[in-house]
């Protein structure tokens, strides 16, 4: 499944320009890259959230494939319904058009719609084994409603519902590890990636679509509005999230972990965090312990990941 940039660029763009994403948004880039790999014969479902809102303001749509939005917490269930309908119609020869080739079903949601309110629906759909790919674009807070904390928000980050003030220093909990929760569903394919790593992303999308059964992709999505950074550096932050081991590139194929990129020398979290306004308050005197906790947590998680890779190696 070698992915070739030249080939990819020749594919039709299925998410058109002119949508309403913010300047510097890396989310639309994620969707474009996914759709370049998935192709026209794809049904897309979107949970309520940034990417749904910016791509489908009536009477416009940025989607050149079929797209459905129903609500915030039910994207996985909705797409599981469409996927089941496809199998049922195909079995009886009732499809609207005779088809050759693979039909893709992709559900996407932000971290709010996936880690939090949509977790039950996602878990159910994955357990039932639908032939669909669920993509979480994880920008680590409820950006669409105004940057409220989610269970994907990292420790110490400033959000509008867990702000930094005189006695509180942003979010007080570590982020939930949703990728591993999805691994625990024992589905054929689970992976993490970022939009900067285009080749890694395209390969993972292709693998996820190719498996017989459900697959889950967790894609880090730097958000200039919620993370407070210069609109030019979103991709750079995606790259550095991997170099700091904050967001490792890895995949789990039939239970076997593989880390796709191992930094020779991991860069300190501080370097990554300093470029984002959401962590600014942590660099004030008195917050050294929080910074240390953040670094320790990332290092511990990385060590665990290395062990999982070792343990599951065949």
């Amino acid at each position: 499944m070698a992915v070739n940039l030249k080939q990819l660029t020749q594919h039709e763009e299925l998410l058109t320009g002119g949508h309403r994403a913010c300047a510097g948004c890396t989310g639309s880039n994620i969707l474009r890259q996914i759709m370049l790999t998935a192709g026209q014969n794809t049904v897309v479902g979107g949970a309520t959230g940034c990417m749904e809102v910016v791509t489908t303001i009536f009477p416009y749509t940025a989607w050149r494939t079929s797209f459905i939005h129903s609500a915030f917490e039910n994207c996985a269930a909705t797409v599981s319904g469409a996927e089941t309908a496809y199998r049922a119609l195909k079995k009886r020869g009732d499809l609207p058009r005779e088809e050759t080739g693979r039909k893709n079903f992709i559900a996407f949601g932000g971290d709010g719609g996936t880690y939090d309110i949509g977790l039950q629906s996602l878990s159910g759909a994955m357990e039932r084994g639908h032939n669909m790919v669920y993509v979480c674009y994880d920008n680590e807070a409820y950006m669409n409603t105004g940057i409220q904390r989610s269970s994907a928000t990292p420790l110490g980050a400033f959000t509008s519902t867990a702000p930094a003030g005189k006695v509180k220093q942003g979010k007080e909990q570590n982020r939930k590890d949703l990728t591993k929760i999805m691994v625990a569903h024992n589905i054929p394919y689970v992976a993490q990636t970022t939009p900067f790593h285009w080749k890694d992303l395209a390969t993972k999308v292709e693998k996820a679509l190719a498996v017989d059964g459900p697959a889950f992709l967790n894609i880090l999505m730097p958000c200039p509005v919620g993370w407070h950074f210069d609109t030019a550096i979103g991709m750079q932050l995606a790259k550095e999230a991997v170099e700091s081991n904050f967001w490792p590139l890895f995949e789990v194929e039939n239970g076997v972990y593989k880390i796709n990129q191992k930094p020779k020398e991991r860069s300190p979290m501080e370097n990554w965090m300093k470029q984002q306004g959401r962590f600014k308050h942590l660099f004030r005197p008195g917050n050294e312990a929080i910074l240390e906790n953040i670094q320790t947590y990332v290092d511990e998680q990385w060590e665990k990941l290395l062990k999982l890779e070792e343990m599951t190696a065949k």
Binding site: T42, V43, W63, T65, S66, F67, I68, H69
Partner: peptide, 14 residues
Amino acid sequence: TLLDPENPVTVGPL
């Protein structure tokens, strides 16, 4: 229908 790739539809927009 969502299932006709020749006639894509957007269902449930903002």
